[in-house]
Computed example of a mutant assay.
Amino acid sequence: MTHNRIAIIGLHEQEYKYIRERFDGLIIWHQSVPKIKVVNKTLYVEKMQGVGMLPVDKIIYHGIFENDLDFISGLALWNGPCFPNAYGMLECRLKISCLVKAMKYSKFKSARGFISEGAYINTETDLVAKWGNWHCGENKHKFTGSWESSENAVLEPYFEGEAVRVLNIGERSWQIKLEGETWLKSIHPDHVKLMEIDAELLEDTLALKEKIEMDIIGNDYIVQKDGTKHLLEINHIPDITRFEEVRLHFLNTVVEWIHKN
């Protein structure tokens, strides 16, 4: 069966063109969140140019935008073919509630705390506060002593060790050694590299992927010198452009998914 029209949302032009060259149907492409409506089980997406909306058969979504939770909810209510599946994205879009769910299932969960906006805490050991719904090392603060939170935040012990990400797309997985000049580590520094996959971390990642019903997952862990492992967070829209083999596998997975019935 050939689908008449798909919508690609969030991907950059290079990735859009890769898919465009491998799909002979109609495509609506938006780099940011478009207007949509769901009527009689049909999803309509804003045109690329001009006024109005067009029905689409499938959605590919890869992005994190400030106010996209309701948009993802709309895709979930539509309940049509969406990659990654909308329900899994919805479960993970809000970082604190996603962490709560992950702690229920992860083998490497560790005790977390919580602090309300405007509340004080005194600690003799290093703690890390995390708030908001952005990634890339933002909205995190490490402290000892007295501290007043400006946001509702999760509190966790500061774990000294190696920061890694286990990434899974379809049938392939990678482990990435995260880097950074400070205690904050991410996938973006030039010296980030792929490394051998830890079997236990992969098993944990795949278990969480199944439980939360995700198609793509990127789990960040800390591995301490004594081998103790801690899940830090789940990335529901992990970076796919940092390594070319990951990017191509992602794009080929998307193309294959588009052509499935």
Rank of each mutant, 00 (worst) to 15 (best):
E171L: 00
K177G: 03
D198A: 14
E181I: 09
I212W: 15
L178T: 04
P189F: 12
R172K: 15
L208R: 11
I187K: 01
E162G: 05
A163M: 12
G161S: 12
W174T: 07
E160N: 11
H191T: 14
E196F: 03
L178I: 09
A207I: 10
D220G: 04
V164F: 01
A199W: 01
L178H: 07
E210C: 01
G180T: 04
L167W: 00
N219D: 14
G161Y: 14
G161W: 11
D198H: 08
V192P: 05
E181D: 11
E160M: 07
W183F: 10
K177E: 14
W183T: 00
A163N: 14
E213S: 07
L184D: 04
R172L: 09
G170D: 04
G218T: 04
W174K: 12
F159H: 15
V192E: 00
E162K: 13
E181V: 12
L202N: 13
L202V: 08
E213N: 13
E171G: 05
L178D: 03
I187Q: 08
E179A: 11
N219M: 11
K177Q: 09
L184M: 06
E210H: 02
H188E: 13
G180S: 12
K211A: 08
G180P: 10
L184P: 00
K211H: 06
L201I: 09
L178A: 06
L208F: 08
I216D: 05
E200I: 01
G170F: 03
I216N: 10
K211P: 14
G180A: 07
D215Q: 01
R165F: 00
E160Y: 03
T182D: 15
R165Q: 10
M195F: 07
T205E: 14
G218Q: 10
I176S: 00
I212D: 09
I217Q: 14
E162C: 05
E196V: 04
K177W: 09
W174R: 12
L167N: 06
L202E: 15
K193D: 14
V166T: 12
D220W: 01
